[in-house]
Amino acid sequence: MDTIIQGLLKALGLLLSFDRELYSIILLSVEVSGVAVVLAAALGIPLGALCALKRFPGRGVLITLLNTFMGLPPVVAGLVIYLFLSRSGPLGFMGLLYTPSAMVIAQAVIALPIVAALTWSAVASVDPAVRETAVTLGATPVLANWRIVSEARLQVISAVIAGFGRTTAEVGAVLIVGGNIAGYTRVMTTSIAMETGKGSFELAIALGVVLMLLAFAFNLILRLLQGKGGRP
């Protein structure tokens, strides 16, 4: 109990004094996960919307795959990306292993199915009358599709936030492909794992506190969004 309290106090000190090491780790975590989720959204939102709006051969299989990969363990994603990016792997020539870019790629892969599957679900549950209404107001099929997706925009944003929440919380993928290099690929989760292993709990607890605050913030935003999009 003593360790925990000591740790919490030291953690508070680090946070409030804007400790450089701590804040650079936090910043990197947000950057990596942020870019990853933007990439995942750029691909995942159109993909999910497409699955909801158009019939095409293999659509059912794709949706099942997306839903399956929502539960992809991050460490497995990390392993696969590592094998691809390793110098002995097919994409080794790009020299991306142990760089922040590798972490972005791995996290984008993790977030993509989440964003896509949740977008699909959101767009598919839009009232079918929306399409007709848009058409009677002069929308072309493309514009009508835009309108349908727009109707679900709050849920789509929630999907993106869910993806972000998942990526900031994972450690398996970023550890394997990033290498936890000090000042370069060390993020909050890998730091916690390392510092805990070393027994330096203050930094680990501080980072844990920040992660929980982030998680709290996500959930708050999600609730607010759902409230806005909900029933009156």
């Binding site: 009232d127 929306v130 007709e132 058409v135 009677t136 002069g138 109707e151």
Partner: peptide, 19 residues
């Protein structure tokens, strides 16, 4: 064509308004 669709409009029995 689209031109025609944009020259007319329908008010349905249970109209739907967008979000």
């Amino acid at each position: 064509d689209t031109g025609l669709m944009r020259s007319m409009t329908l008010v349905s029995q249970e109209p739907l308004l967008f979000n």
